[in-house]
Nucleic acid binder design. Structure first.
Lengths: 213, 213
DNA sequence: TGACGCCTCAACCCACGGGTGGAAACCGGG
DNA sequence: CCCGGTTTCCACCCGTGGGTTGAGGCGTCA
């Protein structure tokens, strides 16, 4: 029995690399490729594949949202995430969105093929790091609507972004048309929610959660 | 006349993707592939290719250092950088190290082929962003031994890394077995050299120069 | 209508960080 | 041999940031 796969990756070399690598593997059939998540979802609707192998960082709605929509719909297609950026937060997001597999792009072709076959039969194949991330954060990788991490509000994310860009509190206040007190309040809330211990740690947090950089 | 190329990329999918994509193009012959810079340089020594097409972020000495050693030697082989991370600092580093071309991995295969052919004949083909980076920083992309940016010393980089990881000064002092005074001195030097205005800006600086993340 | 969460702001405290200046030890090259 | 750069350290000042409490306005949802 062959597994039918749709690929989604915005980088041409990766897309074509996967296509040719997977095409060589017995039992895997690449039935479509897309450069963004929206197109990939259309392709899934047309071709009804067993598995969607998707990058996470892509223009438009991005891979995580793509996986969420796929799993939220009535499709039987399973999702496997394949990304360059395998920080814990990204892993948890992808799995929360409904991905069955999670692999780094460093993975060798045989491993990728294994993950695809596992997902096709409803099983989950995670690489070592993803497994560790899952075990270290039990429960976290279940519902969590994500969007802003750690339950940060919209305004708190605004402030955090400006902190991460290196601005001081008075500058941030001017930028957002609020008082310095308000900025400090927001920052204190973010510190409490994220568990960070200082401004520098906040910048790091922002970078690792895709809020800066 | 065909152009002989050696590829270097640590990610299997990218490596194989490039090999198959470039193999299809008339006039380009992939004569070797490597997963790190050291191996690539050995291959260059053995096969004497026209062009080395290399990723920048790789385990070991990395692509920038690889390019520098290649150009520092007596090899006639030209270098083209191909990376996912195309921030200005990275671009300037790669070009300073002696790369003739600079492309993002989003580039389509025809563009990559053009860059390879240009480099083979001693010309330089940069994408839009790289061109902009060059023009905005005239002169900077010439010699600059790099290693630490902005003339930072080894010790200053140590401290900067720890700042970027979110540590406070006393923690950094403990980590490096020096006094808090020393840490403050180093930080002040880094602030002066980089033109940053605060600790948060330093973290941002570290991330954008590959010293963190 | 009350309860809740978010955004806004103020006053306060003090610890830490940012910015001086000076100084000792070491090492390499002119 | 002396000079310059790096690394190490100290003392001082004060501005900003981190942390607290408290409070009013504004939406939403029960």
């Amino acid at each position: 029995m062959t597994v039918r796969v749709v690929l989604a990756d915005d980088q041409t070399v990766v897309r074509e690399g996967l296509r040719s690598l997977l095409g060589l593997i017995e039992g895997i059939d690449v039935v479509g490729v897309a450069a963004d998540a929206e197109t990939a979802l259309e392709l899934v609707g047309q071709t009804d594949p067993d598995v969607l192998l998707t990058d996470l960082r892509m223009p438009g709605i991005g891979g995580v949202e793509g996986i969420r929509r796929l799993r939220g719909g009535r499709s039987r297609t399973q999702a496997v995430a394949l990304t360059t950026y395998d920080d814990d937060a990204t892993i948890v997001e992808a799995l929360s969105a409904g991905a069955l597999g999670f692999l780094n792009k460093d993975a060798d072709p045989a491993t990728i093929a294994d993950a695809i076959r596992a997902a096709a039969s409803g099983r989950s194949l995670l690489d070592a790091k993803a497994t560790r991330a899952m075990l270290q954060r039990p429960g976290e990788a279940t519902p969590t609507a994500y969007e802003p991490p750690d339950g940060l509000t919209e305004r708190e994310v605004d402030v955090l972004r400006l902190v991460a860009s290196g601005l001081a509190n008075p500058q941030i206040a001017r930028e957002l048309f609020v008082s310095v007190s308000t900025v400090k309040t927001h920052i204190n809330h973010v510190l409490a929610k994220t568990g960070c211990t200082g401004r520098a740690a906040l910048v790091r947090y922002a970078y690792e959660h895709g809020l800066a950089g």
